[in-house]
Design a binder for these strands. Structure first.
Lengths: 242, 242
DNA sequence: CGCTTCTTTGAGTTTGATCAACAATGGTGG
DNA sequence: CCACCATTGTTGATCAAACTCAAAGAAGCG
């Protein structure tokens, strides 16, 4: 089942969360769902376009994204913006705060759609994860995190427009599939072309042309915020630029 | 004093290391230099162009760079290469291994000049830093690390060739100054234009033209691997692109 | 000195940016 | 339900930043 974008509030008990089992805090939820529910301080609903966290903020809480999408970005003084990453349901908004403790954020976070967030006390959440031999999970998260960052940098530094876009689509498909948020090759894709442009270091016009070349080539379909991968092989080939 | 590039072997005792006080493990060295020296397993000398660590390696050791420069990079199948970061004397080669423990490296590391490395057992080095209330330092390192990564991505994604190059020069000047490795506005700059190109997502030819425009504008001088910033204000202005 | 690796420069090309106009789309209030 | 307006997406024409290819100079090194 695909989550209707930004529409669902989290259940009262974390035990009923259909998302949690597939996240990095999944094992904790499975072994002690009541504990997690107890730690949850608040459920927040934030509408599309609102800023959740601002560069320089020192967050005392850990937020998990239950439904809807968000993105993390840095803004230059002249208005240009680099989107650092997209957040999908089940993501922790600031994993680096889990790893390193609180510090002045070097980025802002904005809701792309309406989102529901679960708020936890930072230290409690940390202890929960670091206590019962789950440091491993935190470490794993850190690894994924830096690995992903390096991949992004490599993409933006080395790849053509088509390569970068294909790479991003594949990354999102992969992450959404892990969370059981795809149906076959169809999944939510709520970004405006402007977001894609800012994430990939391109302009909206060029994103548009690249997307339509994908469409004309029968590689993807994209309509009303739903992405369909029509030709996975072709998309992979474009991504690898072989 | 500027370290002659890649020429100096570390002293027998860490207490005499002139570099250590300015690094992230500095406080430890200052309070217990003998302990650090005891943990040091080996001193390695590796000549320029040699690969220190390969993508996929699972390092059991922590290496610190005592003298010389190195760089961390990812290579695409078609030969293109993205340099992720440059390592200068005093840097830990794989800080993420300190933060997250050992894992398959998502990048390779190569010596840019001849380098001297100090090798430590990973877990011992970690314990040393995490024991005596110095988790804070590890966390700080992690922060700097991710912050820097986001800056890099933003640079490559948003900035012009001149902006990126200026940004890189300023970053290196800043880091070298912290380690007392500059003399006024002069510092070592051992990279070939090829390395700059691969770090910034540009070509050598274009790096060359951008560098010579900087030179003609009286912004920098670069000769025999020595960089001189002639007009810091101008360089900053180019970097910010105001 | 001779060889190789770097750097520099020129000419021509490409990718992706800019500018501008217009078409869809979606949400709002009447 | 429709008219209206604000976003968002699409397309064309033109432009510029950065790439490619190629060849000649410097520098470094045994």
């Amino acid at each position: 089942m695909i989550t209707p974008i930004g529409a669902l509030a989290p259940p009262v008990s974390c035990a009923e969360c259909r998302l949690a089992p597939f996240t990095m805090y999944g094992p904790t939820v499975c072994s002690a769902p009541a504990m997690l529910t107890n730690l949850r301080r608040e459920i927040l609903c934030i509408s599309a376009q609102r800023t959740l966290l601002r560069e320089g903020d020192i967050p005392e809480s850990i937020y998990t994204l239950y439904s809807g999408w968000a993105f993390r970005y840095r803004q230059l003084t002249d208005g240009r913006r680099q989107i650092l990453s997209f957040l999908i349901p089940g993501d922790i908004v600031t994993p680096e705060v889990l790893c390193f403790g609180s510090f002045a954020l070097p980025f802002s976070v904005k809701a792309l759609t309406t989102v529901y967030l679960c708020r936890f006390e930072r230290e409690q959440f940390r202890e929960m994860l670091t206590s019962e031999l789950q440091e491993k999970r935190v470490a794993e998260m850190g690894e994924h995190f830096v690995t992903n960052m390096y991949r992004r940098l490599t993409d933006v530094g080395c790849r053509s427009a088509a390569g970068r876009l294909a790479q991003l689509i594949l990354e999102l498909e992969f992450r959404l599939k892990q969370r059981m948020l795809t149906r076959g090759n169809v999944f939510d894709f709520p970004m405006r072309q402007e977001h894609l442009a800012d994430a990939l270091g391109l302009t909206t016009v060029y994103i548009n042309r690249t997307l339509s070349s994908f469409r004309k080539g029968g590689v993807i379909e994209l309509e009303r915020q739903k992405m369909t991968i029509r030709d996975m092989g072709a998309l992979r080939a474009i991504a690898e630029e072989e």
